[in-house]
């Protein structure tokens, strides 16, 4: 083998080693994923939380919400699409404590996904076994402490599955809801739990 050939082989070897390091250390390739679930898992891993048990996945095109449970906590982690093909960690990976002595443990969060979408999530978990259905009263066009007439109240409702978790969501750019009250009802429709949210 001539010295030119040896040099060529060595240079190719160096080029490959360097490519390996570029790929290995690339935050781009390590951060963006082709599948949303991978982005969700990485989000939890790097947050030192979970791995949670995914109760339900909500598919809204460019975003996915993972309603999940991990030991004594519940969460609704959101991952978002990036550059059309990739998925990246989004917001609210953090778990909230399931308060066993409360009938319902809940939280809410709002995050700007893009110019069109301001995603509001009202979510939680029901611990009182008598509760069969969760309702959320909302209204539009009223300020925080204003009296809202009955006719202007809209009630969102969700029947509970075995997993006992619920998620209300809306786009605040389309429906600028003000949440008024959260209720838990038994199968006959009796109010078991009611929390004023204002």
């Amino acid at each position: 083998m001539g010295s030119k050939k040896i040099q060529a082989v060595l240079e190719w070897a160096l080029a490959l080693v360097l490519i390996f390091f570029v790929v290995k250390d690339s935050s781009y390739l390590n951060y963006y994923h082709l599948s949303p679930i991978k982005a969700h898992e990485q989000s939890e891993r790097t947050f030192y939380y979970g791995p949670s048990e995914i109760i339900e996945e909500f598919d809204f095109g460019d975003i996915r919400i993972y309603l999940a449970k991990y030991k004594d906590w519940f969460s609704a982690n959101t991952v978002t699409k990036y550059a059309g093909v990739f998925w990246q960690p989004g917001s609210h990976v953090n778990g909230f404590k399931i308060e066993e002595e409360e009938d319902i443990s809940y939280t809410w969060s709002s995050s700007k996904i893009n110019e069109e979408l301001m995603l509001m999530k009202y979510y939680g978990i029901v611990t009182n076994p008598k509760i069969d259905k969760v309702e959320l009263d909302v209204t539009v066009g009223y300020v925080w402490d204003e009296e809202v007439p009955e006719d202007d109240i809209e009630t969102l409702s969700e029947s509970l599955d075995d997993h006992r978790m619920f998620l209300f969501h809306w786009n605040e750019n389309e429906d600028n809801y003000l949440a008024l009250a959260l209720r838990g009802l038994d199968e006959k429709g009796n109010i078991i739990y009611e929390e004023n949210l204002r």
Partner: peptide, 21 residues
């Protein structure tokens, strides 16, 4: 031709690795 390809790869990789180095 191959000579320049591999050298461009080496140079480009080194530039990308500057923060690490």
């Amino acid at each position: 031709m191959g000579k320049w390809i591999r050298r461009i790869i080496i140079l480009a990789s080194l530039i990308m690795l500057i923060p690490n180095i």
